[in-house]
Design a protein around this nucleic acid. Sequence first.
DNA 1: ACAATATTCTACCATGCGGTTGAATGATAA
DNA 2: TTATCATTCAACCGCATGGTAGAATATTGT
Lengths: 128, 128
Amino acid sequence: MRLNDNMPPRHRSQAAPRPPRSQLNRVYAAIADPTRRAILGVLAGGQRNVGSVARRFPISFNAVSKHLKVLERAGLVRRRVRGREHWLRLRPEPLRQATRWLEHYREFWEARLDALEALLVGTRGRRP
Amino acid sequence: MRLNDNMPPRHRSQAAPRPPRSQLNRVYAAIADPTRRAILGVLAGGQRNVGSVARRFPISFNAVSKHLKVLERAGLVRRRVRGREHWLRLRPEPLRQATRWLEHYREFWEARLDALEALLVGTRGRRP
DNA sequence: ACAATATTCTACCATGCGGTTGAATGATAA
DNA sequence: TTATCATTCAACCGCATGGTAGAATATTGT
């Protein structure tokens, strides 16, 4: 059914509301953006305030401020307000968790695929 | 400036078109969704066709088909068409790359933060 | 008191995402 | 041939995201 006709748009199918993002979800989504990965790199050099981070990127101050908020919600960055400046510092714990998940699954999959390959190659002579 | 006035909407500020997502970006974005992580888990049990994956999820067939396309573009899944069925299998290489990046940065950050803490605790007593 | 500074807030745009339904395509089975 | 099965394609919705600009807020310096 092509819906560009004259029907009231409110009587449509509706997707179920999605559950809120988990911490792990937010961490992966956060590091999926190269600007944010670069911001984490800057912050690895020590505490910075928002302006000092923003100055290093060719995008607007506001865009960087938004990115920082995303990193904060993912738990990768902690903010301390001192006067009119906001100081940001790295919090590596969620990254550790994210690494653990990846490592676990990667090892599991590789083991499984290796086993499969070994099974397919079988007992036939094939040695490096 | 509130822009809901009567001005032609084409004379607005314009965001620069974003560059295409890199492989690493796509991998992190792909695993940021819990359904997709679950799909990878199913595929870890061996090759499956689209329907047999979709049957395990409470969302529509088409939604699963879309998720599979995302995983494919991230390089995490390979598809082989045989007749009318599409067989999907895991490809762990991009995951290895993603793990490497995380591991590298995590280690670097933790080392830096440990060094900083050592410096602060340091040789002198704590001062308020 | 006033001006400058650091930052967020609000509003907007374009694009992407995760979901839906329905139609189209292509291979197999009857 | 025709019906059925496996899958994609096309269009749509609501919401998030990455970007912009400008106004508001709070702190600091003169």
